[in-house]
Amino acid sequence: MRAVVVREFGGPEVLELVEVALPRPGRGQVRVRVAAAGVNPVDAVTRSGVLAGAGLMAPRAVTGIGWDVAGTVDAVGPEVTQFSLGQRVVGLRDRLDTDLGTYAEHVVLDADALAPAPAGATLAQAATLPLNGLTALQALDLLDLPAGSTVLVTGAAGGVGGFAVELAALRGLRVVALAGQDDEPLVRDLGAEWFVPRTAPDVAAAVRESVPGGVDGAVDAALLGVRALGAVRGRGAFVAVAAGSAPVPLRGIRVANVWITADGPALARLSGLAADGRLTLRVADTLPLADAADAHRRLEAGGLRGRLLLTP
Rank of each mutant, 00 (worst) to 15 (best):
Q87G: 10
V5P: 02
P23T: 15
V18F: 07
R27Y: 09
A61I: 12
N40A: 12
V30C: 10
T63V: 06
R47A: 05
A58G: 02
L51P: 03
S48F: 05
N40C: 10
G10S: 03
T63F: 01
R7V: 02
E79Y: 08
A21C: 13
D74W: 00
V18M: 12
V14P: 00
V69T: 12
D43M: 09
G55R: 11
V62L: 11
R31I: 12
V76G: 01
G77Q: 05
E16T: 12
Q29E: 15
L15W: 03
D68N: 03
L51G: 02
V50I: 07
V69M: 10
G71W: 03
M57F: 04
E13A: 15
G49P: 00
G28Q: 13
V39G: 01
L22Y: 07
V50M: 09
V90G: 05
A44M: 04
G64M: 09
G86A: 14
P25N: 11
Q87T: 11
V14G: 03
P23G: 13
L17V: 15
V39I: 14
F83S: 13
P12R: 05
G28L: 13
L17G: 05
E13P: 04
V30E: 09
V18H: 09
A58K: 08
L51K: 10
V90H: 07
G11R: 10
R7W: 00
E8F: 06
G11H: 06
G28M: 11
L22F: 02
G77D: 07
T81P: 02
V5I: 14
E13T: 13
D74L: 00
G38S: 10
A21V: 15
L56R: 11
V39N: 04
G55W: 14
V30P: 02
R31V: 13
F9L: 04
G11V: 09
E79S: 09
G66Y: 02
G38D: 06
E8A: 12
G91S: 15
